[in-house]
Design a protein around this nucleic acid. Structure first.
Length: 301
DNA sequence: CGCCTTTGACCGGCGC
DNA sequence: GCGCCGGTCAAAGGCG
């Protein structure tokens, strides 16, 4: 299953005005090098007006980036809803052609993601089972070296391996992990190399951690590997952690940044997608530096 | 010594 | 009821 692997990672081109872009970068790099290199006296240090102008320009750029991010998010959401519209039938076909065993039913639930409730049929079939088995199942794809036989996915959490099995539909073994950070944490993880693409590890998470992420350094390692949220399989890539969002809701997705309700793990996965894009990280760094400068300015005034 | 991985055995659900 | 299969257990051994 999951024959339609779609790399849903965001490819964000933040190049607002291509004609100005190289110019802007040159200016920015010049400014940043001046900002960092303290030992070297800067011409701009002697020209506060130039600095102020630069600050204003960066502030404008920051606003523009924020606006663009919202637009990109809206487009992403509309694409997401389009995918949701197209997937149900295909998913049903995939599920019905295979044996309706427990695990496979769970996998079908994964295809539908957390929206499994939407597609559950009334006569209590496969989808009902899938819904009953797990309410919080997330799947992620991680790029890995095919020569590396280990099924290691660094996501910042501590895992204890408790089993390994070769499954019927995949020649590579599936590893079973439990969260070992907290005894009360019952989160489980299955890691298996994709049958279609051996360079991809499929990590399936069950449950929600009841503790903080112990190691963000490890998580960042995972990000470098390129964790791809399984958005194509139904997990709505929203910062909002409410997972049982209906299909209709998904269509109305708007950028929601509700900090208190954010699921840290979900955020990590989203960040991972964004950080894979070098232009995005560069633009973000510039935007953040603009924010910092704004803050410094506020402090001094 | 504590924590981890490995691995064969076991269990339970499901289809026939 | 039997066999298949995925998931889990638990003993043994490795490692720092």
């Amino acid at each position: 299953m999951d024959s339609t692997f779609v790399d849903t990672s965001l490819t964000i081109d933040l190049n607002v005005n291509p004609s100005q872009h190289s110019d802007e970068i040159a200016k920015r790099q010049s400014f940043q090098s001046d900002f960092v290199n303290e030992s070297k006296p800067s011409v701009k240090e002697e020209q506060p007006d130039v600095l102020m102008e630069e600050l204003n320009r960066m502030r404008m750029e920051n606003k523009q980036l924020t606006k663009m991010l919202l637009i990109v998010w809206e487009k992403y959401s509309s694409l997401q809803s389009h995918v949701l519209e197209l997937t149900p039938k295909a998913s049903e076909d995939v599920c019905s052609e295979s044996r309706k065993r427990k695990a496979e039913g769970e996998d079908c639930g994964n295809v539908l993601g957390t929206n499994a409730n939407i597609y559950s049929n009334s006569d209590g079939g496969l989808f009902k089972r899938a819904r009953e088995i797990k309410t919080s199942v997330k799947r992620f794809y991680v790029r890995a070296d095919p020569s590396d036989a280990s099924l290691v996915v660094k996501d910042g959490y501590q895992w204890r391996k408790y089993g390994q099995k070769v499954t019927k539909d995949n020649p590579s073994p599936r590893a079973y992990y439990r969260c070992s950070f907290s005894p009360s944490c019952s989160v489980k993880r299955k890691v298996q190399r994709s049958a279609e693409d051996p360079t991809v590890l499929v990590a399936t998470y069950e449950g929600v951690h009841n503790h903080l992420q112990p190691s963000r350094a490890d998580a960042s390692l995972g990000l470098i590997q390129g964790v791809i949220p399984a958005t194509a399989t139904g997990s709505v890539p929203t910062i909002d952690s409410r997972e049982n969002r209906s299909c209709g809701d998904a269509r109305k997705l708007v950028p929601e940044i509700e900090v208190p309700a954010v699921n840290p793990f979900l955020v990590e996965q989203m960040v991972s997608s964004l950080t894979r894009n070098s232009s995005f990280t560069a633009a973000l760094a510039a935007a953040i530096s603009g924010r910092i400068l704004d803050y410094d300015l506020m402090e001094t005034l």
